[in-house]
């Protein structure tokens, strides 16, 4: 095992452990953590078996094997960003609905308070809606 391999293995395992730890302390939700776990496992595999990296690169037609790693990293980032965009869309939609429901609830609360106030103070007992 040469130095490069040792460094890449250490980095990959560190990422893996950090993600697990974040999930364990609930700083990261499992569903968002999975994609990171998958990425770090791929990194670990490639660190352990450099021949695999060379083999795949050769099969695809990439002459410089580390370029294949860059390709993987870019693909991973793209997927992650797309995933985040969908999450943001979902969150903004939910956020809108909360704001709407809150506005409605305040209105109803006001209505109710007015009704109660006029009900208790009105001598005629006839409360205007």
């Amino acid at each position: 095992m040469d130095i490069v391999q040792l460094i890449s293995l250490t980095v990959s395992i560190t990422i893996f452990v950090v993600v697990i730890e974040l999930i364990r302390r609930s700083h990261l939700k499992e569903r968002y953590g999975l994609i990171w776990l998958a990425a770090s496992i791929v990194l670990i595999i490639f660190s352990l078996t450099r021949s695999l990296l060379h083999y795949i690169a050769r099969v695809i037609g990439i002459y410089y094997p580390p370029a294949f790693l860059f390709l993987l990293a870019i693909a991973f980032l793209l997927v992650l960003l797309l995933h985040f965009s969908t999450v943001i869309s979902m969150l903004s939609e939910k956020n809108n609905r909360i704001a709407q429901e809150m506005g409605i609830l305040k209105t109803r609360l006001n209505d109710l308070e007015n009704k109660m106030a006029s009900g208790s103070s009105a001598t005629s007992g006839e409360a205007k809606r």
């Binding site: 809108n96 709407q100 429901e101 506005g103 409605i104 209505d111």
Partner: peptide, 25 residues
């Protein structure tokens, strides 16, 4: 008049939808 105060600006679409929700409820 009854007033529904939205906590922040949602845009006309979000505001109308709040009205639709209220009407159905």
């Amino acid at each position: 008049t009854r007033v529904a105060d939205l906590p922040y600006n949602l845009g006309i679409g979000g505001a109308m939808q709040a009205g639709f929700l209220y009407a159905l409820q």
